[in-house]
Simulated scan of single mutants.
Amino acid sequence: MKRLELKTMVRIGNLEATTERLVIRPYKTVDYSNWYHQYAHCYAALNKFDEGKIDLSDYTEVWFDEMVKKHLHFMNKDEAYILGVFKIEDGAHVGVIDVSTLMRNEFQWGRIGYTILNTYWQQGYGKEAVKAVLDMAFTQLGYHRIEAHINMDNTASIKLAESAGMEFECVRRAFIFEFGEWTDHLVYFRNAKQE
């Protein structure tokens, strides 16, 4: 219960993690042109888990403003924390990480998801960002356990979870409906350090 009380004191405006090369924070409306530019310059999808180059015709500045408001609503309700990943050097938007609440109270349990734009792969940004967000989840958001749910054949995501210090726990059978069928997922996890 102590962690839950600490969580309610988090100020969303102060929610930010900084690493040697990155700043990870909630999106702001002023991020639109940076966000748009980076997505516009993605390569075509490099594998089935990569969104790659997308049609941006519906992603207007008004749409982006609404997205930012939705994200704030999710954070205020403690449902999800959706964070942009930006390079400190030039401010470029390189990806997005989200932490979703699965259950609070005596569990303090969440799930992490991560996407690095394919133009920034193989540069260590994913590992750096995921490690920072895991720390944020434990120290600023009061979670005790964070899981990553990963497709069985998503080798890059498995390597990223392991490099960020997450441990393999189990296979959840027919866990999520995707690609037109109920799909097995690997579960990786990390717990907060015990005091």
Rank of each mutant, 00 (worst) to 15 (best):
Y143Q: 02
S157E: 04
W121E: 00
D65M: 15
I150Y: 07
L117Q: 00
L56V: 04
K2V: 12
R11T: 04
A92F: 11
T60K: 00
C42G: 06
H73P: 04
A148I: 01
Y43A: 10
D65Q: 15
W182M: 11
N118S: 00
K127M: 08
D184N: 04
I176V: 14
S163E: 08
G124E: 00
M103R: 14
E61S: 15
E128W: 05
E66A: 14
A129R: 01
R111L: 09
Y39R: 11
F64P: 04
H144M: 06
D50M: 01
S33V: 11
E16F: 04
D78S: 13
F138A: 07
F107H: 14
K28F: 00
F189R: 04
Y114C: 13
T60R: 07
M136T: 02
F168G: 04
A161D: 03
E51V: 11
H41D: 07
L186Y: 12
T155K: 14
T29M: 08
A45W: 00
D98F: 12
F168C: 07
D78P: 05
Q123R: 13
W63A: 14
A17N: 07
G142N: 06
A174E: 12
F74V: 07
G110C: 07
I12F: 10
P26T: 04
A92M: 10
N151Y: 01
F138H: 03
F49N: 02
V130Q: 02
S100K: 15
D58P: 12
K7E: 08
D55Y: 01
R190W: 05
H185W: 03
N76M: 11
